[in-house]
């Protein structure tokens, strides 16, 4: 286990991310609503930089009571990061593929110590 420096606490605003690497392992560290999340930056699809794309809320269908289609909306709580190569969406809070939740990116522990944010990379 190797601790890799990510940022000073308070340096990242909600929605920011950093890409750090150690010994050939690339990790994307996100800060979102007071929590840090860290995942492998290798997309499960074709190996693109999964953590380097947009942060987009989950799109949801809105149906009327009679089940006819009304419109779509963005979820207020579910947020995804999107691989920029072909658009695979990953749940920011779990690293799971939104279209196939059985698959997930490898996650890494994040520690805050002495005013610094670190990620443990094996």
């Amino acid at each position: 286990m190797t601790e890799v420096f990510v940022a000073k606490t308070g340096e990242m605003a909600s929605g920011d991310r950093r890409i750090v690497s150690h010994a050939g392992v690339e990790v994307g560290v996100f800060y979102w609503e007071d929590t840090y999340y860290a995942y492998s930056n290798i997309c499960l699809h074709q190996g693109g930089p999964a953590c380097e794309g947009l942060l987009m809320h989950q799109v949801q269908d809105v149906l009327r009571p009679d089940r006819s289609f009304k419109q779509q909306k963005f979820s207020e709580t579910e947020i995804n990061f999107v691989c920029p190569w072909h658009g695979y969406e990953y749940d920011l809070k779990t690293g799971r593929v939104v279209a196939d939740p059985a698959r997930r990116l490898k996650s890494f522990p994040v520690h805050i110590r002495d005013g610094n944010v670190h990620v443990d990379i094996n």
Binding site: L54, M56, P84, W85, H86, G87, E89
Partner: peptide, 8 residues
């Protein structure tokens, strides 16, 4: 471009 998701 999938709503900009494929940002290139």
């Amino acid at each position: 471009d999938m709503g900009g998701r494929v940002a290139r």
